[in-house]
Every structure is written in structure tokens, then in C-alpha cells.
């Protein structure tokens, strides 16, 4: 196992939106997930070695102009103060390239949502309203300017830190929930994301936190760099059935 990763045992979860005829429960194979979100310091080492991902070199097709905007505010030659904070303002392209460079990959939605169901004590919280309320409260607090160091963040059952309450996290297949321009009548997904009427399509219409993640994922594109969005990497467990295309 790569250093800094934890093993997530096989399991599964009930997605917020279920397709008719689709499985009510999505199985997830065992995989490895970074214990912490990727930090500014780690991302800086990547950029130092792969110069084309440096802010001054990146091609506009791979990231918008917010790319690594937080680096501009700190001293040009160091990342003093933010080194151990989660890196944000990275595009999906850049995050993928980073994980690739580390010999890893981005987790997919199903993997991420599966791990996100874990509380401190259990791999799946079920409908614990307290847990949902805690997560929801973070989502509804304005973005704080100072992020915590990754070591100081909340740890769940799997030993994964900071999955909720720190930054939104990129996933590999975010655009499966993509909603960009569409008539309401045409798709239940948009119905559910854009108007109350479609909430019937959601398995648990009271899981507001999940609604927000789905909505958030559908709001960005592969170039988007957002000050409250970071990522972590995953990889397959040798021998476990592959889940990654």
C-alpha cells in the first residue's frame, strides 16, 4: 500500500438518484484512498517536477484563471502558512495529472459517496440525523478563508481525514451528474436539482447534504478552479476486482 493511504473494504451505498431499473444499491470494490486531502506543499512538488502544470505555464484549456490563485497571495518562493492546508483552485485536469504522477487516480463518485457515509464509529451512518445535520452545517457556513492543516481534520471510521467539513472534493466522473442546460421535463435529475417537484426522484429527499454535493458537482467543468474545492487520490487494491475504467 502506498504511504498515506488507507484501505476501504468492499461495500456499497444507495445513491441519491437511482435510475429506473438500475440497482437500488451500488456495490463498491475494495480500494485505497488517501488519508488526507492533497496539500499545497505536495502539489507544489508536483508542479516543480511537471512544469507544464505550473500556474504560469498551464494551458487555458486545462484550467481557468483562478488556478492556484491562493499561491499568488503568499510569498512567491514559499507556501508559508498554507503548505499543509488542502490545495484548492485546482482543475479536474490538474488533479487527474497529479494523481497520475503519484501512480494513483481520482476516486469515482460511487467510491467517494460510499466513504462519505462513514461516521467516526461505523462505515455507514444510516439515517443518523445528527450526522447529517453536522455535515449540512458545514455546507451552509460561508467558505472560511483559512483552511485547517489536513492533519487537524476530522477522522472517520476508515481513518480518512477531512472528508466533510474542509473542502469540496473532485471526483473522476463528476460529469455523470452534470447539468448544464435542459428543460425540466426532460430529465429527473435536473428536476431534482433545479426544482422541488423532482425531489421524488431522489431516494432520500431529506439528505440535503447529498443534494448539495450533486448540485456542486454539476456546477463545474473540467477547467473550473474553485477556492473551496480540492481533491485526494485513490488507487485499486491489487487483486480486488477493478472498478476504474
Amino acid at each position: 500500500m502506498q504511504q498515506g493511504m488507507v484501505r476501504i473494504e468492499a461495500g456499497g451505498y444507495t445513491p441519491l438518484f437511482r435510475d429506473e431499473g438500475g440497482p437500488p444499491f451500488i456495490a463498491v470494490d475494495a480500494f485505497l484512498l488517501d488519508q488526507y486531502p492533497v496539500t499545497n506543499g505536495e502539489f507544489a512538488r508536483f508542479v516543480a517536477s511537471e512544469q507544464r502544470w505550473a500556474p504560469q505555464n498551464i494551458k487555458p484549456v486545462f484550467a481557468d484563471s483562478n488556478y492556484l490563485a491562493q499561491w499568488r497571495e503568499v510569498a512567491p518562493q514559499g507556501l508559508e502558512g498554507i503548505e499543509n492546508q488542502p490545495v484548492t483552485n485546482v482543475s479536474w485536469f490538474a488533479a487527474r495529472a497529479y494523481c497520475d504522477w503519484r501512480g494513483k487516480r481520482l476516486p469515482n463518485v460511487d467510491e467517494w459517496e460510499y466513504v462519505a457515509m462513514a461516521s467516526e464509529e461505523a462505515p455507514t451512518v444510516g439515517d443518523d440525523p445528527d450526522f447529517q445535520a453536522r455535515v449540512l452545517q458545514w455546507y451552509s457556513t460561508p467558505a472560511i478563508t483559512r483552511l485547517p492543516d489536513v492533519q487537524d481534520t476530522w477522522r472517520n471510521y476508515w481513518g480518512v481525514h477531512g472528508l466533510h467539513g474542509v473542502v469540496w472534493e473532485l471526483v473522476n466522473d463528476f460529469n455523470t451528474a452534470l447539468v448544464s442546460g435542459e428543460s425540466r421535463a426532460d430529465s429527473e435529475l435536473e428536476n431534482s436539482l433545479f426544482c422541488g417537484a423532482g425531489a421524488a426522484a431522489a431516494v432520500d429527499p431529506s439528505d440535503y447534504a447529498a443534494f448539495m454535493r450533486y448540485a456542486f458537482r454539476s456546477s463545474y467543468g473540467a477547467r473550473s478552479s474553485i477556492s473551496s474545492m480540492g481533491f485526494r487520490c485513490a488507487s485499486d487494491v491489487p487483486g480486488a476486482k477493478g472498478v476504474n475504467p
Partner: peptide, 24 residues
């Protein structure tokens, strides 16, 4: 705004069109 945590959109009831503008 960059310091928003949520994506947002707008549905204007004065709009004739998909989602009142929400989808666009």
C-alpha cells in the same frame, strides 16, 4: 462570488423558457 461555497442559479418567473433561466 469566489468565497461562495455553493453553486447558485436563478429562476425568474418572468422568463418564458427552460427553468426560467435556471438551467442556463
Amino acid at each position: 462570488r469566489p468565497d461562495s461555497k455553493m453553486p447558485h442559479n436563478i429562476d425568474l418567473h418572468a422568463v418564458t423558457g427552460p427553468g426560467g433561466g435556471a438551467t442556463s
